[in-house]
């Protein structure tokens, strides 16, 4: 059952990225272009998502177990360390260069865009490198 849930949640997430237009890097770059011509849309995407995910998380986090799995798995790492900051700096730089982050990049593979496909291959290379050096 949790395999079907994974597929369906992926589809809902993907449609959300299309409707919010976050699949389009120009929209994201518009949000990051705060000092010139600013497009605040991305902030509204986050607000929309948080309005649902926040109350649901806090309502269910103390329940015994999720419906189709044996236990909840919630990140426990609370450390503010160099990895967190340096990783976020690298991510922010790559994000600002093209306007793609992992979700929209993978979702945009559906559009057969050569540039986004090249980006995704490089991103997976980055995942692999990180898994080796961490």
């Amino acid at each position: 059952m949790n395999k079907i849930v994974s597929l369906i949640c992926g589809i809902i997430f993907g449609i959300g990225l299309v409707i919010s237009q976050m699949i389009n890097p120009e929209k994201v770059l518009g949000f990051l272009n705060i000092f010139r011509d600013w497009d605040p849309s991305l902030a509204f995407v986050m607000i929309g998502a948080l309005v649902i995910s926040t109350p649901i998380f806090h309502l269910f986090k103390n329940k015994n177990k999720p419906m189709f799995s044996s236990s909840f798995s919630i990140p426990v790492n609370k450390e503010i360390d160099k990895k967190l900051i340096i990783g976020s700096i690298f991510f922010g730089a790559g994000w600002g260069l093209i306007g793609l982050c992992p979700g929209p990049a993978i979702t945009s593979l559906a559009l057969f865009n050569v540039s986004s496909a090249i980006f995704v291959v490089a991103m997976f290379a980055g995942f692999y490198i990180a898994s080796k050096v961490k």
């Binding site: 730089a93 793609l100 995704v120 991103m123 490198i129």
Partner: peptide, 8 residues
């Protein structure tokens, strides 16, 4: 950019 995003 892809490598920065993946690694970061």
């Amino acid at each position: 950019a892809g490598i920065l995003v993946g690694f970061g």
